[in-house]
Design a protein around this nucleic acid. Structure first.
Length: 271
DNA sequence: ATCCCTTTGAAGATC
DNA sequence: GATCTTCAAAGGGAT
């Protein structure tokens, strides 16, 4: 079963990029209006970064978030939208990158200078639920309660990197082009396509990612990627490495059996 | 219900 | 400083 999808993915890969003109991007990608970038409600508000306002994934706000929670999502129906980021200064990006479809950057009422009632579905409890356990007075229960409480703290997600932004945008297109639905196979294709992009095209996404990081830092000054460490249950280190890579990453950050990484590319065109 | 798979890149951790 | 590890998204598949 999985083999079939792999073969299917392989067939698709064999046709992309075209054998001739390797390294050339075949066609300018038309605007992609997938579900994550479909709402072109222009709401320029905070900064040039916020050019669009859309609502692709109206994540319901947690039912019970502590008042202490700085980034408390608000449930204002009129504003149940999402910001998204366009190319901004880059101008050439033919699409609207659904910037604020990335939950971690959903604005909350605590954002300095930001209008209060912007939903912040990104900051959600890891489980997506706010179900409370009955209080148990036993010591064990208290400890467990603490652990649970900690685990249910709303999470501020990492900002998306360039590839993640690309993947989020192009996923629907790849799915439309093939019969695959499994994300693992889709992501393999997207990884190949990413490498097939020209540097200029990649630079657009690197720039978007850089802006994401910048804004993320502004919104959550004290946030660290470490905050989310351990919130995902993962297999043991060895097993994970064996199954996914068969080895260690090389100096390029890729793995031995994979295609060689392109020449080092510094996307920082704006500093 | 939860984790795995699969990708790249950023950032934290470790040596 | 080099290397390793984790997590961002996504959703079908496996357990």
């Amino acid at each position: 079963m999985y083999k079939e999808t792999v073969y299917s993915a392989f067939n698709l890969l064999m046709h992309y990029p075209p054998p001739s003109g390797a390294g050339q991007h075949p066609q300018p990608q038309p605007p992609l209006h997938n579900k994550a970038s479909q709402s072109p409600h222009g709401v320029p508000q905070l900064s040039p970064l916020y050019e669009h306002f859309s609502s692709p994934h109206p994540t319901p706000a947690p039912a019970d978030i502590s008042q202490k929670q700085v980034h408390r999502p608000l449930q204002t129906p009129d504003l149940s939208g999402f910001y998204s980021l366009t190319s901004g200064s880059m101008g050439q990006l033919p699409h609207t990158v659904s910037w604020f479809t990335h939950p971690s950057l959903m604005l909350g009422s605590s954002v300095p200078g930001h209008p209060a009632a912007i939903p912040h579905p990104a900051i959600v409890p890891p489980s997506g639920k706010q179900e409370l356990q009955p209080y148990d007075r036993s010591l064990k229960a208290q400890v467990e309660s603490k652990v649970e409480k900690e685990a249910k703290k709303p999470t501020i997600k990492k900002p998306l990197n360039a590839f993640m932004l690309y993947m989020k945008e192009m996923r629907a297109k790849v799915i439309a082009e093939c019969t695959l639905k499994e994300s693992a196979a889709i992501n393999q294709i997207l990884g190949r396509r990413w490498h097939a992009l020209s540097r200029e095209e990649q630079a657009k996404y690197y720039e978007l990612a850089r802006k994401e990081r910048q804004l993320h830092m502004q919104l959550y000054p004290g946030w660290s990627a470490r905050d989310n460490y351990g919130k995902k249950k993962r297999r043991s280190r060895e097993k994970h490495q064996e199954s996914t890579t068969g080895g260690k990453r090389n100096a390029f950050g890729t793995y031995p059996e994979k295609a060689a990484a392109p020449a080092p590319f510094l996307p920082m065109t704006v500093l």
